[in-house]
């Protein structure tokens, strides 16, 4: 904070761009950021360095900060059949949610922006009002609903609801986007004799690619990182039904069979971090803009 106000007043007093006072201020500025970054990245460094240690090294006293010899073998633990099976389950959930969220939110948004019907207003209000609803309330009865449908301990509860509309916030985002697409385009198609379904699939859906890409990315990270859903719905399932996050928690969390094997935990943790991190670094512009967009509108 102090460096900040100092740097802002600098141009008032000194006009020259490279005056000594100014250079000192920049040095202070970057030093402050460097210190903050060190604190921020320390947990990542711990994770990375422990992922290369031996079991005795992670349980050594005084605490070790670096491995004597880098042990890449910890990463091999992640490639056991068990974890690969969990990876497959995670990918199924992620893929189904991405499909459901993009396709169905666009489908519903098309209905609300491009189609005419009497109940549009009341239905729209009903749907948007669910945005206010805390998940706390719906979580338990939804669990009971899936229990009564005999769907517990399967992956279905983790993605079925997405196919019913694709998420209210996502619908809202696509609607905002669709309003920006000139109606002349679909009018031309109507004249050519295309019905609404045809227009949706061959005109509206492709045009919405940017916003659907944003939705797909957020759904990917959201589902990949999700632990609460799997914890509730797969709690009593066999290991072969777990998602990665749940298997990770059950193996390495309190009371887990590998609780003390921090070296394995960190290696698996690093690997689980890579997919969302890569997606984030590739699409950071869309993601950060989107966070702000949903933040301001939502």
């Amino acid at each position: 904070m102090r460096t900040d106000s100092a740097a802002q007043t600098a141009p008032l007093r000194k006009k020259s761009k490279y005056g000594p006072a100014r250079i000192v201020k920049w040095i202070v500025y970057y030093a402050a950021i460097a210190v903050l970054l060190c604190i921020f990245l320390l947990p990542f460094m711990t994770m990375l360095s422990k992922s290369f240690m031996t079991y005795t090294e992670v349980r050594e006293l005084p605490v070790r900060f670096w491995a004597r010899v880098m042990q890449f073998s910890n990463y091999a633990v992640a490639f056991q059949a068990k974890y690969l099976r969990m990876l497959l389950n995670t990918l199924i959930v992620v893929a189904m949610n991405m499909l459901g969220a993009t396709l169905m939110s666009a489908f519903s948004a098309f209905g609300f922006t491009r189609m005419k019907f009497k109940l549009k207003k009341p239905l729209f209000v009903l749907i948007m009002s669910t945005l206010m609803l805390p998940t706390m309330i719906t979580q338990i009865p939804t669990y009971i609903l899936f229990a009564n449908l005999h769907m517990l301990d399967s992956l279905f509860p983790l993605f079925i609801s997405t196919f019913f509309g694709g998420g209210v916030l996502n619908i809202f985002l696509v609607m905002q986007f669709m309003r920006g697409i000139p109606k002349d385009i679909d009018n031309a198609a109507v004249i050519d004799g295309a019905g609404p379904f045809r227009i949706f699939f061959s005109i509206a859906l492709p045009l919405c690619k940017p916003v659907l890409l944003y939705i797909a990315i957020t759904v990917f990270t959201g589902c990949w990182n999700d632990i609460q859903g799997p914890l509730i719905y797969l709690n009593s399932a066999g290991v072969e039904k777990y998602t990665l996050s749940l298997g990770f928690y059950f193996d390495f969390g309190a009371g887990g069979q590998f609780e003390l094997y921090k070296n394995w935990q960190m290696a698996l943790g690093v690997l689980m971090t890579i997919p969302p991190a890569v997606v984030f670094f590739i699409f950071q512009r869309q993601l950060l803009d989107g966070v702000v967009m949903t933040g301001v509108k939502g």
Partner: peptide, 20 residues
């Protein structure tokens, strides 16, 4: 046809919000 477009989300809200 319009109602078909909004049917999934309306059902979704009824099943996963109103009913719960």
């Amino acid at each position: 046809k319009s109602y078909i477009f909004v049917l999934p989300v309306v059902l979704g809200v009824l099943i996963f919000s109103v009913y719960p």
